[in-house]
């Protein structure tokens, strides 16, 4: 089991996984986009603007999921000091920042036809901007601090503190009066979204998750090579 988590063992699997994802990605993407843009119905109230949901919601889910895993990995790294964990979190952070940015931009584009404005400083949107700020701090601490140990410590602290913001984002629509609608999909309890819209949403989410996995694997592989390159003289 420990051997499985060894960087060298993982490295062999990365190439295979990248090839596998590449082989199915474009077919899935084509199916998901066709259903999201052509075959799914328009909303009775929001009309066709509801189709923005198929990129906005998965982007927001990924942004929150990435930060939660970043916080968990940072917490574990803070305690156990496992180098592999910091490599993984370093590879996840740029993906999370990108999807936070996409969630904000697509949300803004959705806001114009539904709320009549591109931007309001309401609780959900502001807390998403704060999330982007924490991602930015995490990445910046790795870029600016040259001592890797110190950079890991500070970035871990940023992720752990930033995690406080995750439940605030989730429950912001319930705690405050916001323009943003409450969650339609609930893990516990019944969802208020029709299956004809749920299918393209889950398909787009799967495609974007595959994309994340692809970017993560490439970034992780780059990080491993960077470390091995640095240690080449010691081998």
């Amino acid at each position: 089991m420990i051997k499985f988590f060894n960087i060298s063992s993982i490295f062999v699997w990365i190439e295979k996984l990248i090839n596998f994802i590449n082989s199915i990605f474009f077919i899935l993407l084509l199916i998901a986009i066709s259903i999201a843009l052509i075959f799914s119905p328009a909303d009775y109230l929001q009309g066709d603007s509801v189709r923005i949901m198929y990129v906005h919601v998965p982007a927001a889910w990924i942004a929150l999921g990435s930060f939660s895993s970043l916080a968990l990995l940072s917490f574990l790294n803070f305690i156990f000091k496992i180098k592999n964990l910091s490599l993984i979190s370093k590879s996840i952070a740029p993906i999370g920042l990108m999807f936070t940015f996409l969630a904000i931009v697509t949300g803004s584009l959705w806001g114009r036809p539904t709320w009549g404005t591109f931007w309001v400083w309401d609780a959900r949107i502001t807390s998403m901007v704060i999330l982007a700020f924490f991602y930015f701090l995490f990445i910046l601490s790795h870029k600016l601090i040259l001592d890797e140990e110190k950079a890991n410590r500070i970035s871990s602290l940023v992720a752990i503190i930033g995690f406080i913001n995750v439940p605030i984002i989730k429950y912001s629509v319930d705690w405050w009066n916001t323009l943003h609608q409450p969650a339609s999909i609930k893990i516990t309890g019944s969802s208020t979204i029709h299956s004809s819209m749920m299918l393209p949403l889950l398909l787009m989410f799967s495609v974007l998750i595959l994309y994340c996995a692809l970017i993560f694997l490439m970034k992780y592989k780059t990080e491993i090579i960077r470390i091995k390159k640095k240690n080449l003289k010691r081998l």
């Binding site: 843009l37 009309g47 189709r51 923005i52 990129v55 982007a59 990108m98 931009v105 036809p113 970017i215």
Partner: peptide, 26 residues
């Protein structure tokens, strides 16, 4: 899309352009 096309297409366009650029850079 009944007047919503600009918002819908722009959302998808931005998403896929950003994803494409990040993929190429990585």
């Amino acid at each position: 899309m009944n007047g919503y096309g600009i918002f819908v297409w722009l959302s998808f366009f931005i998403t896929f352009v950003v994803c494409g650029v990040v993929y190429l850079k990585t």
